[in-house]
Design a binder for these strands. Structure first.
Length: 527
RNA sequence: GCGGGCGUAGCUCAGUGGUAGAGCGUCACGUUGCCAACGUGAAUGUCGUGGGUUCAAGUCCCAUCGCCCGCUCCA
């Protein structure tokens, strides 16, 4: 763990030092949960988004039905009519503290749930005096404690007795049991094991407001009528536009709508560098299909998305595909799998693939009054499509690729002694800079020739020119930026026009004609 | 949210209540001949922020913000 912690610190440090990721508004002390991407970071992140958009929208694969996948893009506004969030369930119980049962997943208003105990007097008196732990264990024994829903404290005992079984009631009447310790659940200390679910007796989570949406006001008046939310997910914008897309594109089920965009969640506890941020970017597909085909499409997208991460360099040994257990599923989902990556700080979710059924469209149909059904002209069938949702975090993917790329190896210095080298082994598609061009020294016309090669490359791909300091240092700098190739103009260039081109990972150099640099790089990087 | 640790130069970090420091990095000039070269010089700090104690605070106290770790949480 110490090593992993060191590794994460090195990555954070490198990210800052080389301009990948900075703390947001750092000159004012930063702000918890917000991050900025620097010059290299913005290229990395953009490359990831571009690759996703290309592979999903522009050039989609063949689906499980043997036909090319139908996919269109969308870019929705961040602020929408608040009714969207009422329909989606995000606004539920806005002001009320809520608790969830960890066991049965039921949700209650914390100020309406009380916990108490029926003490077994005989057992209680038999406890060794002065043994605090024994008393605590006694009180927390699930056999005695219970939760009950009641409007206020005065009703707790009656409600508890009414809910008790006949055996318990007899013991209460005979004085063997005593009613004790009624306590509102949101007044317990966080995570107090006394908290018990009124439905099943299971352990409850801490009381908290579940609404994590950032709020603002649209218009001049800051009243409840002007209240709006920053979207906490991009999905609802797609559902809200589902009918528009159907009506304007001649697209047919099965098809998908893809979107990349910012979302905002007022996380209680941002943590782990950019992994859990309050402002983040999602790349998300809502794939609409016939209910009978949903399982098949779910499996297809789950496996396709997993493979995408593997194909772009995440080691399969560090990736997990974790299907959710039945009791772990959200209320709207019939199946869900997380694609997880083994970050230095632990295994965490990169992307979730869920079968959301017709929950969202049915919800919007109900709340908006608009018809969300689809009519299949071939089968003459009318239905609300099921939705398969692969939803990935762009910032999480960026962080995963950054962590995966980070490597330290050894390289000989000028005198032949081995020195530690830090190198980012990015997939070529993601490397922020594809090729760097150097003159070996700043004389004999080398800078001019190098500039010409740089200019030719820069028209087609991300290139970088550097003539400062020793060439070895420039190589190492590019290693830390993850640049796959470095081109050096030297004395021989003057004689025959050839340059050296150095590979980031092997550090081997080959001589090629200066005119061939662009073609060479494009061929090797498949771009 | 709770508990613990830490905030000093771009990075990593020293710093005993008494002049603000090192290594690396950055920049300039010179030198150069392929993997963090060398020489000379330079820039960079409200010591996270705000109060307090003191003749004097980077150092002690309080608050606050941020980061890290553990727990919790992540519809």
């Amino acid at each position: 763990m110490a090593n992993e912690q060191d590794l994460m610190e090195k990555i954070v440090s490198l990210a800052k030092r080389r301009g990948f990721i900075y703390p947001s508004s750092e000159i004012y002390g930063g702000i918890n949960g917000f991050w900025d991407y620097g010059p290299l970071g913005v290229e990395l992140k953009r490359n990831i988004k571009d690759a996703w958009w290309h592979d999903i929208v522009r050039c989609p694969a063949t689906g499980p039905d043997g036909r090319p996948i139908q996919m269109v893009g969308l870019d929705c506004s961040i602020i929408m009519n608040p009714k969207v969030w009422e329909a989606s369930g995000h606004v539920v119980n806005f002001n009320d503290p809520l608790v969830d049962c960890k066991q049965c997943k039921a949700r209650f208003r914390a100020d309406k749930v009380f916990v108490a105990c029926f003490y077994d007097q005989a057992a209680y008196k038999a406890l060794p005096p002065g043994d605090t732990q024994a008393h605590l264990n006694f009180v927390r024994n699930p056999a005695y404690r219970f939760g009950v829903e009641a409007d206020d404290e005065s009703q707790v005992q009656a409600a508890a007795v009414a809910g008790a079984n006949s055996d318990t009631r007899r013991k209460l009447e005979s004085g063997k049991y005593e009613f004790r310790l009624p306590m509102r659940v949101d007044r317990l200390k966080p995570s107090d094991p006394l908290a018990a679910c009124p439905a099943c007796g299971g352990e409850l989570t801490d009381a908290r407001k579940f609404n994590m949406m950032f709020k603002s006001h649209a218009g001049a008046m800051e009243d409840s009528a002007s209240l709006v939310y920053l979207r906490p997910e991009t999905a609802q914008g797609i559902f809200a536009n589902y009918k528009n897309v159907l009506d304007t594109t001649r697209i047919k089920v099965p098809f998908g709508i893809a979107q990349i965009g910012k979302a905002f969640r007022n996380e209680i506890n941002p943590r782990n560098f950019t992994f859990r941020s309050r402002e983040f970017e999602q790349m998300e597909i809502e794939f609409f299909c016939h209910p009978s085909q949903a399982d098949r499409w779910y499996e297809y997208w789950r496996d396709a998305r997993f493979k995408w991460y593997v194909d772009h360099g995440l080691k399969s040994t560090k990736l997990r595909l974790r299907p959710h257990e039945k009791d772990e599923l959200a209320h709207y989902a019939r199946a869900c799998a997380d694609i997880e990556y083994e970050f230095p700080f632990g295994v965490s979710e990169l992307e979730g693939v869920a079968n959301r059924t017709d929950f969202d469209l049915a919800q919007h149909q109900k709340c908006s009054g608009r018809d969300m059904t689809y009519f299949d002209d071939e089968t003459k069938e009318r239905f609300i499509p099921y939705v398969i949702e692969p939803s990935g975090g762009v910032d999480r993917a960026t962080l995963a690729f950054l962590c995966e790329a980070y490597a330290e190896d050894e390289a000989p210095d000028e005198k032949g002694a081995m020195q530690k080298r830090t190198v980012l082994r990015f997939h070529p598609r993601f490397a922020p800079i594809k090729v760097a061009v150097f003159p070996l020294v700043k004389k004999d016309g080398m800078p001019e020739k190098a500039q010409a090669i740089y200019q030719a490359c820069a028209k087609h791909l991300a290139a970088f020119y550097d003539e400062k300091g020793a060439v070895g240092r420039r190589y190492r700098r590019q290693d830390e930026a993850g640049t796959p190739f470095c081109v050096t103009v030297d004395g021989e260039t003057n004689q025959n026009g050839t340059v050296t081109i150095r590979d980031r990972d092997t550090m081997q150099q080959v001589r090629i004609p200066g005119d061939n640099v662009l073609a060479y790089v494009r061929e090797r990087l498949h771009i």
